[in-house]
């Protein structure tokens, strides 16, 4: 498939992403990577679609690439949840009817429809993250960048958001999840490790998680089930990866 998102930082970091990808970015330089996406850096070349990201077309690029940041989780631009969600659509000059339609259908999907008139400061952290993700997805961007926010979700909300992100990538979207929590990498189809501002590894999820020595040297762990699989494979009990509890137990006790 043709590449949609191209990223070059001098010769240290270089990768391309095609549509319908969910990629997890781990390592200690996630912050630096995010900074180059938000503020234009001279040494950085970013292409989204076919347009290059320059200081002049910031507004146009931000319509295509939307952010959900951890440090903005307690900063609100509206005084009620509904105002917070529709802020992006107001900036794009949508009419009142179009805004109403989108807000009502999406808030039912995110299970926020009974909280629309409340003060955003009084919500729990799980609802706050859902509201921020909803307000980024409502403008229908092509690239969604999440920065360490999925760790704040409750268990049931996490399953709901992963469902929604899967729908979003199936509808030709790109999800870039910058995270420190290795369990979230199992949802991604691809992992990129950026360490000390250099690209350390780039490939499909399971093949990167297979590189035990590299992950240990960089101080990163593995998801619990993958670690379990690895130990059992070292002992020779199983010979391939089983990624859910039921499948693994079924393989142990055939």
């Amino acid at each position: 498939m043709k590449d949609y998102f191209k990223y070059r930082y001098t010769t240290d970091i270089e990768f391309n992403l095609s549509l319908k990808t969910h990629v997890a970015i781990i390592g200690n330089s996630g912050d630096f990577f995010l900074d180059t996406l938000i503020n234009n850096n001279d040494k950085c070349n970013i292409f989204i679609g076919d347009k290059e990201y320059t200081p002049e077309n910031k507004f146009y690029i931000r319509k295509l690439m939307s952010f959900v940041l951890y440090k903005h989780l307690n900063i609100f631009v509206g005084e009620t949840v509904r105002d917070e969600i529709v802020f992006g659509l107001e900036s794009l000059a949508f009419t009142k009817n179009e805004i109403n339609e989108r807000v009502n259908s999406l808030s039912r999907r995110f299970k926020l429809d009974n909280l629309l008139e409340k003060d955003p400061n009084s919500l729990g952290s799980s609802d706050k993250v859902k509201m921020k993700i909803l307000s980024s997805l409502i403008i229908k961007p092509n690239v969604l960048v999440l920065d360490n926010v999925l760790c704040e979700l409750d268990y049931v909300d996490k399953l709901l958001i992963f469902d929604i992100l899967k729908e979003y990538t199936d509808n030709e979207g790109v999800v870039i999840n910058i995270t420190n929590d290795m369990e979230e990498t199992l949802e991604a189809s691809r992992i990129i490790i950026i360490h000390d501002n250099k690209l350390a590894c780039d490939g499909k999820t399971i093949s990167v998680l297979n590189e035990e020595k590299l992950l240990k040297r960089l101080g990163l762990g593995m998801p619990f089930i993958v670690e379990l699989n690895k130990y059992l494979m070292d002992y020779g009990i199983i010979n391939k990866y089983y990624l859910t509890n039921e499948k693994l137990v079924g393989a142990l006790w055939k």
Binding site: F59, R62, K63, H72, I75, V77, F87, G88, I139
Partner: peptide
């Protein structure tokens, strides 16, 4: 900054 990221111009 937050408003700018949300397309405020």
């Amino acid at each position: 900054e937050c408003a700018e990221l949300r397309l405020y111009d």
